[in-house]
Write a protein that binds this DNA or RNA. Structure first.
Lengths: 260, 260
DNA sequence: GCAACTTTTTTGTGATCACAGATAGACGAT
DNA sequence: ATCGTCTATCTGTGATCACAAAAAAGTTGC
């Protein structure tokens, strides 16, 4: 009716705080284990503590933040066991999303995915660390959106939230570029499977992508030297058995007479 | 040190409010779509509005409650599409939990599951409506706990939260006893698969259990006459194809050239 | 110099207040 | 009788206050 004024933001303060904290976590602007205080965040955001505490509580229920018995709030820090646990869950759920994407796939979707993956490749060649992470996220969520399930997307979003602070480390680790470069091929596999409506293959390829990155990162992060510095030289090159045809598996998964 | 005093509850008010609301939702004490107001809940709980609003926000992020653009809070109501969507996700995630339970299964676990299922059967024969729901929940969560993944258990808990208000309807629908009686057999299948460490079978059987109940309920609830009364006579008996050997499927799942 | 104690500050939590938007009911004009 | 308006009430939201527990800093005694 009247275009002399623009639409303004009508969302609640709390919602905006929540989104801002969420973005910050996604992008790794907070370190794992870092302590957050309501008042200091409120000051930084320019609001009163009120919206902040509600936003924080929401993030605690999503497991993105942890509340110690002291009631101190920290950014969730993953032990190796928890890490493995969440990775397996991610493979399952995000694999399912990929399978559904394959069901609903269209030529337009595949074209879009290829374009995103090409951009991902460009960022890798340019060694643009944050661009790499962004491109990877972009690709994955393009697949998940194609699953056409709002509920699923929301669940996956809260899964990713846990890995944001950790991924921020990854970009500073040596060899990450080579790691992501291999990711391009796996992404291509995912696209190919989606294109052929091959749900099972899409699921497998996507789980492979998650697993490969997870195993790579786990080796540097958890099994490396125990210094505090997160970006030390990782001595081992360990290129053995990094062909894409076999799925890397965690230790306790070496077949126990069952298949899953 | 001093046993003249007992341990008291040191959790925060907000946490207790959250748990209480959660229990109420689980047990179907709130109707789907029911409007909740902070102040009236606070009065009913005997606290100030403060802890209530935080607890409510948490439940909103879990999708157990919905916040309309008016900012009114309602108990989440599922459309048929959303219902189907969530059921499929449940099959996937809870099926995965069953597969993991099969991996870690012990004779003690199977014994326990059989005992729980026997209790479930007793409640059915006694036509004890709330006992039936409780027994069913008990069985399912015993399986999920056996998956030995805290993270997974939490996710599943929030999935179930959405179905609490709906399940409360189910117990008043005619024919629910027969429905649950068939559930006993499926539970037995689940147990058998877990006992044999057959992950794939456990996953399948558990998904079957969810699907069978979901399809049954969907028919009465969404496809029935559109009167407001939730517990009217369901005219159709529709016993066709209710043998346990075939998985009931939703309309859009009749194979589209892909498998998932 | 170091340990134990005391004081001060900081932190999360709960209650209360203030306010704007929404809702419903009463009232009045047509 | 019906539609619109106006008012009174209710609801969620944000800010501020009050308080107890914890942490940090300072102080004292040996």
């Amino acid at each position: 009716m009247d275009d002399r004024v623009r639409q303004i933001d009508v969302t609640t303060m709390q919602e905006r705080v929540y989104q801002e904290l969420r973005d910050a976590l996604y992008q790794g602007r907070f370190l794992p284990g870092e302590v957050l205080t309501i008042r200091s965040l409120a000051a930084a955001l320019g609001t009163s503590p009120m919206p902040v505490r509600e936003a924080i509580q929401r993030l605690v229920t999503e497991n993105a933040l942890t509340q110690l018995p002291n009631r101190t709030i920290r950014v969730a820090a993953l032990t190796q066991e928890k890490y493995d646990e969440w990775i397996r869950i991610r493979c399952e759920i995000e694999g399912y999303a990929a399978a559904r994407a394959a069901r609903y796939s269209t030529p337009q979707l595949c074209e879009r995915l290829r374009a995103i993956n090409a951009g991902f490749g460009k960022a890798i060649e340019a060694e643009d660390a944050s661009g790499i992470l962004e491109g990877n996220q972009h690709f994955h969520f393009a697949v998940y959106e194609a699953a056409q399930s709002e509920a699923l997307l929301k669940i996956i979003g809260s899964l990713w939230l846990r890995f944001g602070p950790i991924l921020a480390f990854a970009q500073h680790l040596p060899g990450s570029v080579e790691m992501f470069r291999r990711g391009i091929e796996v992404h291509d596999r995912v696209i190919s499977a989606i294109e052929r409506h091959a749900g099972k293959e899409a699921r497998f390829a996507l789980a492979l992508d998650i697993r490969a990155a997870a195993v790579w990162f786990r080796r540097r992060h958890f099994e490396g030297p125990l210094d505090k510095a997160p970006a030390q030289e990782a001595p081992r090159t360990a290129r053995a058995r990094s062909r894409l045809s076999s799925v890397p598996r965690f230790a306790d998964e070496r077949r126990s007479g069952s298949e899953d």
